[in-house]
Simulated scan of single mutants.
Amino acid sequence: MPKGITQEQVNAAADALVAAGEKPTVEKIREALGTGSPNTVTRMLEVWRGTLAQRLQEAMTLPDVPTEVGQAFVEVWRIAVTHAATLAREALAEDQNALFAAQTSLTQERKLWEIALAEAQANVAESTVQRAQADTQLRERQILVDQLEAQRTDLLQQRDRLQGQLDTQHAELQTLRVELATQQDHVRTVEDRTHQQIDQARQENKALQQRLERERREHGKQVAQLTAKHEELRKVARTAEQTAAHHAGHVAALEATVAQWRESREPAKRTTHTVTKRAVKSTGTRSRRRKP
């Protein structure tokens, strides 16, 4: 309720309405004052109606008033009182109707509030259940998160361990690459030397053949000796070819070793040397078998 409304303000507003020929109602009083709750204005308006008769009686006993004027004044006040009473009854009926309508509205509003309260309580209960379910899900997810974190830690440890193994294997791979490059250089050197020897033997063979032809025409007696020397040179050429085949087998053995190392990715220096020695030994055996 707004502050500042008094009984005197309500009385003055009601008197002003009566003097203007209007019926003093709660709404008009509130409109005139610009404030005041309907209940407070209704209560103060009842007080004003109760004091109206007393104020009229006091007006009839005013001193020094001629009898005719007093009677006229009383008649005027009687008419005013009658009119005010009629207006008061009408205002009271309107106020009662307004109160009844307000009570009806309040009852309906109360029912609406009760329905809203029931819905709110149901929502609270449902929210409580949902919160309990959410708490359960949160605990389950927290357990899952802990499990995943443990798995993550284990995977990180495995990754670090595998990374260390990979670094070791990478270092061993680099070593094997260096050794392989060295062996390949040696093989190429041997191959180049063998090719040079073969070319030189071929050139010598050709020269010897030419010389043999010349000397056959010139020296028939030395044919047997030149033929023997020719056979000897052929043996040298065959030996050179066998040496070249030996080195080719050595190269093939090295390539097989590299392929095996790439497939297994488990380099072993001792195993590589063993395979190489076996390949060399096998090649040498094959070379010895080829000799006449």
Rank of each mutant, 00 (worst) to 15 (best):
residue 43 R to V: 10
residue 4 G to Q: 04
residue 256 A to H: 05
residue 36 G to E: 00
residue 30 R to V: 02
residue 246 H to L: 15
residue 249 G to V: 06
residue 252 A to E: 14
residue 88 A to R: 03
residue 183 Q to P: 00
residue 142 Q to H: 06
residue 197 Q to R: 13
residue 4 G to T: 06
residue 142 Q to G: 07
residue 245 A to F: 01
residue 232 E to G: 06
residue 196 Q to T: 15
residue 133 Q to I: 10
residue 56 L to H: 12
residue 67 T to I: 12
residue 214 R to S: 10
residue 32 A to R: 13
residue 274 T to P: 00
residue 111 K to W: 02
residue 128 T to G: 13
residue 187 V to C: 12
residue 261 W to A: 13
residue 102 A to D: 14
residue 268 A to K: 09
residue 138 L to Q: 07
residue 57 Q to M: 09
residue 54 Q to A: 15
residue 1 M to C: 04
residue 278 R to F: 06
residue 247 H to I: 12
residue 162 L to G: 02
residue 282 S to P: 05
residue 88 A to F: 03
residue 251 V to L: 12
residue 68 E to K: 06
residue 221 K to Y: 02
residue 233 L to R: 13
residue 111 K to Y: 03
residue 6 T to D: 00
residue 113 W to L: 15
residue 291 K to G: 15
residue 107 T to V: 09
residue 237 A to R: 11
residue 105 S to E: 12
residue 23 K to L: 10
residue 117 L to I: 13
residue 224 A to F: 12
residue 50 G to Q: 11
residue 141 R to N: 05
residue 120 A to R: 12
residue 199 D to G: 02
residue 261 W to Y: 08
residue 192 D to H: 13
residue 93 A to R: 14
residue 274 T to N: 09
residue 122 A to R: 11
residue 221 K to M: 04
residue 45 L to G: 01
residue 132 A to S: 04
residue 129 V to P: 00
residue 132 A to M: 03
residue 287 S to H: 04
residue 120 A to E: 08
residue 45 L to H: 02
residue 25 T to K: 00
residue 52 L to G: 01
residue 208 L to H: 09
residue 171 A to Q: 11
residue 225 Q to Y: 10
residue 250 H to G: 11
residue 276 T to G: 07
residue 116 A to N: 07
residue 156 L to A: 15
residue 83 H to I: 06
residue 25 T to L: 01
residue 217 R to S: 11
residue 196 Q to V: 10
residue 122 A to T: 10
residue 90 E to Y: 03
residue 93 A to E: 14
residue 274 T to I: 10
residue 20 A to G: 07
residue 178 V to M: 09
residue 59 A to R: 09
residue 77 W to K: 15
residue 111 K to R: 09
residue 258 V to K: 05
residue 186 H to S: 14
residue 215 E to V: 05
residue 156 L to T: 14
residue 176 L to P: 00
